[in-house]
Design a protein around this nucleic acid. Structure first.
Lengths: 230, 230
DNA sequence: GACAATCAGATTGTCGACAATCTAACAAGG
DNA sequence: CCTTGTTAGATTGTCGACAATCTGATTGTC
């Protein structure tokens, strides 16, 4: 018998596709924070009925990127500086936990995957594809959580990631300037390959702080002079 | 002008009520793990159409207490020993983080609320109401997360709590014997009132370990001799 | 008897229409 | 001018029916 690995087949419900479409639109900033999602309009654009669309929206509400007020509507969440601060401070704790858990589980497959994802970030950077750059950077960062062999941790991190990706996208949209060309992940990858777990944890924490300050400053700036709204 | 505080009015959609009903049924063990939820039957029992029921189910899937397979059905999640282990180890980290964050925010209102919830647990214990005992104990435990002033943390903890409550309910159902009569939370409350943050963190970690071992043993036992299924 | 093809029943996914609710504009009254 | 009541339009929430898919039993064939 040939021992072949099969990946699970694709979800073939409209609902799943709608979720993917909406999530992408939100996380890339195509849909602005606070913006209302008109069910009829969206369902007509997507050529689906409101039923699967509404189910998809419930999922995204629970996922934390949408918020819903009965009989008023469903809106893209608003990003406050405090939200970012909260998400990041928790993320630090999760990173430390993840590194501790996956440290002994590192093997050649891990290192290979680490390099692969690192390469993806570098490629996106070369392409000046900011959206993809954010995506790949988060995927690189997510590897430690995937490798920690803790489903609840992974789930939690993925929820956090959604928001972080959204925040980053907004940030990138705001300052149209080019993304950092130099490779900020080089040390991170090296630490994860090294032999000092504490050092890796420390670096993860500090590395995060870096981007964070910039992002936070942007969020605070937004709050000082709020736009007229969508 | 009289300055009165109003709490937000209740959600008055069928969907919200269905979510509450289903969640309670799952967390109290009324619906067994792995059990399939027949949409038509449930909607008839609740006297609602399938639309709001399905939306409610999507929310609970995202909440992590249900799992859905396209065209096959929606099921109560199965509890494995590993799930419990994962949830608990993460919970420890979150507890430590929460205590660190709320430590400086403790005030009289916090202590009052702490006592109030502690009293609720004792009352449930006196009443031999195991379901309520689990509920109140988790609410007592949740206070540190509510007080930590981090919405993302609170959200994460509430997700975890759902599962923990479910696990505990199963556990209690299995061994029908009386719940612990002595007050296991006395020290926990005292530590949170005290002046030594590290001690409080340490106690939270150890306190949790206690119940955890028992729960884990039960889960392992379940896996050794699986039931015939629902 | 083993195995594949077929089919009926049950269940989930999706649709279009109706009911309940909100919003904003407008009129009436003080 | 401000407030309150009314109303029309738009939008969300819910319903009942139909389409797509799965499951298990049955039948026919080797």
């Amino acid at each position: 018998m040939v021992k072949t690995e099969f990946s699970p087949i694709a979800d073939t419900t409209r609902r799943a596709e709608i979720v993917a479409l909406l999530r992408r639109a939100i996380l890339t900033g195509q849909l602005q924070p606070g913006q209302k999602l008109n069910e009829l309009r969206i369902s007509e654009q997507m050529r689906v009925s409101r039923a699967p669309l509404r189910e998809a929206m419930r999922e995204l509400v629970q996922e934390g990127v949408l918020t819903s007020i009965p009989y008023a509507g469903t809106f893209v969440i608003n990003v406050t500086a405090k939200d970012i601060d909260d998400a990041y401070s928790l993320n630090k704790v999760l990173d430390e936990f993840a590194i501790e858990r996956m440290w002994k589980l590192r093997d050649q497959r891990f290192f290979d995957e680490l390099d692969r994802r690192h390469e993806a970030v570098k490629q996106a950077t070369r392409d000046r594809d900011t959206t993809r750059q954010i995506e790949t950077a988060l995927q690189l960062h997510g590897l430690i959580h995937e490798w920690a062999d803790n489903s609840v941790l992974l789930e939690t991190w993925q929820r956090l990631t959604s928001r972080l990706q959204m925040y980053f996208a907004l940030h990138q949209q705001a300052r149209r300037e080019a993304v950092p060309a130099e490779d900020v992940h080089e040390t991170y990858v090296a630490r994860l390959k090294g032999g000092d777990m504490r050092a890796a944890q420390r670096h993860a924490r500090e590395h995060i702080d870096l981007d964070f300050e910039e992002l936070l400053a942007y969020a605070r700036d937004l709050e000082r002079r709020p736009s007229k709204g969508a």
